[in-house]
Design a protein around this nucleic acid. Sequence first.
DNA 1: CTACCAACATACCATGCAGGTAGGTTAATG
DNA 2: CATTAACCTACCTGCATGGTATGTTGGTAG
Lengths: 141, 141
Amino acid sequence: MISTKGRYALRVMVDLAEHRNGGYIPMKEVADRQQISLKYLERILPSLSRGGLVDGVHGKGGGYRLMRDPGDYTVWEILSLVEGDLAPVACLAGNAKPCSRAAECRTLPLWEKYYQLTKEYFAGITLSDLAGLAPADNYVI
Amino acid sequence: MISTKGRYALRVMVDLAEHRNGGYIPMKEVADRQQISLKYLERILPSLSRGGLVDGVHGKGGGYRLMRDPGDYTVWEILSLVEGDLAPVACLAGNAKPCSRAAECRTLPLWEKYYQLTKEYFAGITLSDLAGLAPADNYVI
DNA sequence: CTACCAACATACCATGCAGGTAGGTTAATG
DNA sequence: CATTAACCTACCTGCATGGTATGTTGGTAG
């Protein structure tokens, strides 16, 4: 199951896409609009920043800003960054030790296909799809 | 993510389908074949039994047995029974309190469609698909 | 009737993660 | 220098996972 961390991150990104004006948007605004605890948001945003999805600036007039066009962010990218591994079962996660029963496992192909399905679904949706913005809607500076 | 409980339950069901002979199969056999702790298996099977998926009999010569043809069990049915709710996010789970932001939530439709996709995928696969048995392969008594 | 087998039930425990809260530090602006 | 806002660290509570251990109940075989 996707945790609140992933869900909140997605909502913040959509919010930043909808309210973008070329400048920096303080998290307090987003927290108010989205009704999410500011402190909790502040714990999520650094990973988005380190991942190069947003750009954060300290101090007065500061805040966060998208670094690319909303149409260039996929949901898969955002969720992966925040949630880590989106594998449906432990044996498919990146840090999993190789399973000796893999070759004969009757259920492994089921999980693999489901993983693939999940990836394709989330990779096919961008921020502009969610924000209801046209893909050609360009960044205003 | 699907927990070991769900994964093990599925493997047990497939094992019971592959080795079914009309009689009862003791969990010790399954535990040995599947390399799963017997004690842990014994904690999973009562729910499968209560759910009417298998039939358990005490004592010597006892064990568990499928109650229907393998082709009549869907993966969705098995996982739902053992895992409870398979909703990808908390707001879609059955026990979730109604969210006041649902009407305006930009991300809700995304989760709903993913939930639907998951359901359709798992409901489209049966035990006989996994066990490699032909659907017409009938129960031998 | 007794030994044995196997399902079934219950209790306990260690670990990790979710979902926060609290407080302070650093960097930029006016 | 006061304010703003990102950023960092530590801590806390509750719950789920993945077991282990110790039985009890019900049925069969000898």
